[in-house]
Amino acid sequence: MSAPTAAPAHPAAADHAHGESKFQIYIEIAMILAVITGIEIVAVYLPFAKWLLVSALVVLSAVKFLFVIFYFMHLRWDKPFCTILFFIGLVLAGGTMWALIALFQAEASLPLPT
């Protein structure tokens, strides 16, 4: 186990400004996430084509997802290895989901009529 250790000294004022800017970023991100959630809820009742709404919902969810992992989970400021490690799991999960859904869409896998 390792604890964070002293790094080359940063000026205290710069650190304070960094902390302040992070606070502001978090508040802004939270507001953006709330607005996107509101748009998603309204979007499902709009009279647009289904493919368009599904695409919009997927994109909006992906934007929320990326905002949370890169800002709230600090991936933006951490070493790239953390991003790579997490995306390995994410790509495997996404690939499994895609494969399963594609497999079950084949005619041979449809449930037999009872």
Binding site: S2, A3, P4, T5, A6, A7, A9, H10, P11, A12, D15, H16, H74, W77, D78, K79
Partner: peptide, 12 residues
Amino acid sequence: HAATLDHHHDPT
């Protein structure tokens, strides 16, 4: 010493 801690990297 709060300002001297780097919370994103650990050289050890």
